Amino acid sequence: MKKFAMVAFVIAAIVWLLNSSILATPPAGETKVLAHRGIHQVHKPDGVDEKTCTASRIEPPRHSYIENTIASMRAAFDNGAEVVEIDVHLTPDRKFAVFHDWTLDCRTDGSGVTEETPMSELKRLDVGYGYTADGGKTFPFRGHGEGQMPTLTEVFDALPHGRFLINFKSERREEGATLAVLLRIQPKWRKQVFGVYGGRTPTQEALRLVDGLRGYDRQSTLSCLGRYVAYGWTGLVPEACHDTLIVVPGNFAPFLWGWPHRFAARMQAAGSDIILAGANGGGDFTTGIDSADDLALVPENFSGYIWTNRAEAIGPLLSKNLAASNDSE
């Protein structure tokens, strides 16, 4: 019995040594902000499903920005975002419309399926039309979003120094192929594409066609994290975790072998970046780190990206915390 206990102790000690962050040097670099939809109007999350019109249940507005507009993206970068996440739909006239919803009825004064509507028609819509915080008594953004739905190429041209995480909203392979063609025609835009994600088929097609492009879908993320939990204690990094973007829900992170610094070093060596989401960031992985309390999920000296729905608050707060940390050293 004593011999068995000793063997168990030695094995446990080896596993601890292989995975303890106490003995690991954090990878170089500072925490970076990834702004979901730019700066936008947030909504109450309770009871939301795929059919919920979230524009009809926004919180009382704290600012005037509307998601996925060039103004909201510029504001996110001005508030310290390193990357802005945007949503795209390939329209019948072969333009990428930058807009979140599958249909137009919720947020705009139009109707119908976004990807089935020509960009010339989408340009005439008011993207702020449907927003209300008081059950429809007032609509504070009506008239302020007319003509504000941009194309992806307009985004690239307007914000040439910005970097974007592109969310394919469909499962159409041609979306990934069309993005690859755009980047081939205009190589200067390639450096602006931080990565792609969303629909598995277009995401994987874009990754196949664009050298060095990184991206993920729900299946690839679960494959990476699941396999790492299974045998990452050995120090081996699953192939699914190589050369990609790894979304880690904040409440799941402590269960990853070597979290935070040894895990981060392993992913960095595998050519991957970490995107830390909020607690319960499973499912579509879009729960954000959106408050000062949520920042407790972010490890000290974390060099990855944090996913937020409130870049206007988190960006300045993070900069303040980093400045205070540097002053204390």
Rank of each mutant, 00 (worst) to 15 (best):
N280Y: 13
T286N: 11
C106Y: 01
K320Q: 15
N321M: 15
R62P: 06
R124D: 07
G304Y: 09
L222T: 12
R227F: 13
Y216R: 01
A270Q: 05
H43Q: 07
G130M: 12
P299M: 09
K191A: 15
E312H: 13
C53Q: 11
R172G: 08
Y131Q: 03
T203A: 03
E82S: 15
D78V: 01
E67H: 02
T244M: 08
G128P: 00
V229E: 01
A81V: 04
A76I: 05
A311H: 02
E59A: 10
A323R: 12
W233T: 07
V193M: 10
V155T: 04
F156P: 05
E175N: 04
L183C: 01
C224N: 06
F255T: 13
M73Y: 13
R173P: 03
G315I: 02
H144V: 06
D78W: 00
A8V: 12
F9W: 12
F255V: 05
L297W: 10
N326Y: 13
E116T: 14
E67M: 04
L245N: 07
P27N: 00
S223R: 14
A55P: 05
D46M: 00
I166S: 04
P160K: 14
E82L: 07
A311P: 02
I289W: 05
V98L: 00
E67W: 00
S120W: 10
I58L: 02
A279V: 12
G143V: 08
D293E: 14
G128S: 04
L276Q: 09
L34R: 05
V98N: 06
A253E: 06
D327A: 15
V229C: 10
R266W: 03
P27I: 05
E30N: 13
E146G: 14
V84F: 02
R190C: 08
D294Q: 09
A5N: 09
R62C: 06
K51C: 00
C224G: 06
P27K: 03
E154T: 10
R107I: 11
T114R: 03
D93S: 12
N251T: 07
P118A: 07
Q268L: 11
E205W: 08
L225Q: 11
L317R: 14
H40I: 00
D327E: 15
R124L: 14
Y197H: 14
F302C: 01
Y305Q: 00
G38P: 01
T286I: 08
V7Y: 01
G278E: 02
L90H: 07
G80Y: 01
R200K: 15
K169N: 03
S21G: 15
V229A: 13
T221W: 03
A240K: 13
H40S: 10
K51L: 12
L179K: 09
G258C: 00
I22Q: 14
P254N: 04
D157I: 12
D109N: 15
D157G: 07
Q186I: 13
S120I: 13
R163P: 04
I274K: 08
L236E: 14
N79M: 12
F4L: 15
V196W: 06
V33F: 06
A158H: 08
V155N: 07
L183E: 03
S220K: 10
F252E: 11
R208I: 02
G235N: 02
